[in-house]
């Protein structure tokens, strides 16, 4: 029982990441409002950030800024990748939001169901 509990605690970050990931996916798939869809997409992206960063952490380690006082550092490599991903994420979000504004100007709604109704 205690080994099960310690396994659960040491994998808790993965479970929460998976929860965030599938709730982002759920929002994207099931909600018709486009702003909400983009929020779901952002949720999915940020869950991937934690998925990358959390294995880089070493217990009792410190941030990867070299100094004589410390010898154990967390891995700097995922941090670099995710810095790039955050900036790309905000770029895609801005593009998506401007698409939403254009759709609202053109059709007067940002609800997916109404857009499909108009088409028929």
């Amino acid at each position: 029982m205690s080994s099960f509990l310690s396994n659960f605690v040491s994998s808790y970050n993965y479970y929460i990441i998976i929860f965030l990931m599938i709730s982002g996916l759920y929002i994207v798939v099931s909600r018709g409002n486009m702003v909400k869809k983009l929020v779901g997409l952002a949720l999915f992206q940020t869950s991937v950030y934690i998925l990358y960063i959390s294995p880089g952490k070493i217990l009792n380690g410190t941030a990867p800024i070299l100094s004589d006082d410390f010898s154990l550092y967390s891995s700097p490599f995922p941090h670099v990748l995710i810095l790039t991903a955050i900036v790309v994420g905000i770029a895609t979000l801005a593009l998506g939001l401007s698409l939403v504004i254009r759709i609202n100007e053109e059709f007067g709604t940002i609800e997916e169901d109404k857009l499909f109704e108009d088409e028929i």
Partner: peptide, 11 residues
Amino acid sequence: IFDAVDVALTE
């Protein structure tokens, strides 16, 4: 908390 200070600032 995960020691990613630069990423935390950016986020």
